[in-house]
Amino acid sequence: MSLVLTSARYDLLETVRIPIALVGSAFFPAASMLFFVVPFAGDEPAGATFATASMLVFSVMVSNLFRYGIGVSEERAQPWEPYTRTLPAGPLPRFAGRLLSGLVIMLISLVPVVLIAALLTEATITPARFALASGAVFVTALPFALMGFAVGYALPSKAALVVCQLIFFPLAFGGGLMSAPGQAPGFVESLAPFLPTRGAAELMWASVGDYPPHPVALGMLAVWTVALGALAVWAYRRDEGRRFS
């Protein structure tokens, strides 16, 4: 356990020492709020609350997928990462430490989203539901963090960047994050429950407001989490640093 914390601490130190990285991860979700949620759904309390929840899921996905997908893949190409793998610790402390540090960074990047929702829209939430939503954020972060790990350990950094970009957009749209609950185009609504973004969104919607979550979507979220976890472990095991043929 202490190794997990040590790992997380040094990961955070590395991030904090390049502060622009923090600004970068906070900017995208905040800008999306300002451009998409404030003008289109800001006036109506329930709509604004659900839209904010969708935007949180979107931010959680982008933050995790890119931080781990690209971060891990870039680190793997550096000699330091293979060196740490010769230290007497299994993959778990490093995985968990990274996850922990990533969650801290993610929470920081979500602060502007919540502030914008509170100050510039009619979104409302009770303290109890806020606590529930905070818990939901951690649950929804897990599958996307694992997805990032899988990409990061499986692919070289240039490929990882492209793959992350290819993945996040269809997942966001296909999961129905760009529309109010149940209001997405028909084909999206029928596809959405099978994507991890939808399960995550249903969880968030159910935690912030009066919304009955779709059981298939929640089940699929669990399936995705387990499958992506297995994929991440597999990618880690076969990784032997950068490959050249």
């Binding site: 130190l13 590395e14 550096q78 000699p79 330091w80 060196y83 010769t86 007497p88 610790a89 299994g90």
Partner: peptide, 20 residues
């Protein structure tokens, strides 16, 4: 990892975590 408890080695190409 249990068998690496008595191992000492160095990073290649002087690669260290640059910001630490």
């Amino acid at each position: 990892p249990r068998y690496r408890r008595w191992l000492g080695t160095t990073p290649q190409e002087t690669g260290l975590a640059a910001t630490l």
